[in-house]
Amino acid sequence: MSKQFLTLHTVDKAHPTDIFALAATPTTLLSASGSSTIRIFDTTAPDFPLTQSIEGAHKLGVHHLVTSKDGKVAASAGFEGTVKVWREDEAGVWGEVGLIKDSNKAGEIWAIALSADGSYLASTTYDGRINVWDLGQASMPKIREYETKGSFGMCIDLSADGHFTASGHENGSVYVFNNDTGRMLHSLAGLTKPIRTLSFSPASKLLAAAGDTRIIALYDVSSGEQVANLSGHAGWVLNLDWSATGEWLLSGSHDSKAKVWSLESRTCVATHSHGDQPLWAVKWLPKTGRSELFALAGGDGSVAFYREAAGG
């Protein structure tokens, strides 16, 4: 079975350099790059116009950018090692509401994730610590610290139901923590090379993880068992994202290929090339109309929007 996705629109030179992250709200797409600026595009208009540029968000560049599921809160992580928290006001303008700095000098904050309601932020460090921060309090304090074996935490995700935190590490480890008990639930086996991306399914039942093995592993969150291997990428897998319904999984690779996987058939149903540069970021837009939309971005600085073909 194959599925058709058509190029809808491309924003050329959305950023002057590599786009490292994309994040979505119900009406916008946020993008972050090696430049200091975060850009926001209106996804309700056919030509995806730029609506806001947050200049100087992180002087040394931005490597991670996430939004809460409700689209009210965004967080960005910069190369200088801090996280900024952003909120949209009533007029639709994003502004900074907080700064998170890891007091421990040895670590730098690397990957970040927001809870569905934007009240918690989870982060990784180079030396393998997982921290959770309470954004509900004005000082945004660290409220939990999970210890791992000290391998670089390259990626992190919080489940939509709020129960789980998962982290992927350079040595191939994947850990799932139970947020209610503060304990490690699973140390998942199966991958031995750097895990560069992981993502909980919208229903919080499955966890997808991938990286340098170029295989996407699917785990059952409650049992910790590996339930599928999706293979087909020829390059390192850099980013994963589930569609809102959980039907499709989107993956982006270092060799500039994006793939759409069907969860039902567990096969790749579409492959797209995006230039000849690493594809750092892949993102489904929240489903508003009949067809699914996704965005791809990476080393060439452009953002390409794709639409599911009718009847495909």
């Binding site: 002057p16 350099t17 090696g34 560049g61 490597h63 190369f79 390259m154």
Partner: peptide
């Protein structure tokens, strides 16, 4: 720097950090 003379060096350094 972002507006400095070596945009490519900056980009390469950032990619290096991303890929580790």
């Amino acid at each position: 720097a972002e507006d400095g003379p070596e945009a490519e060096w900056r980009a390469e350094m950032q990619r290096m950090l991303l890929l580790n």
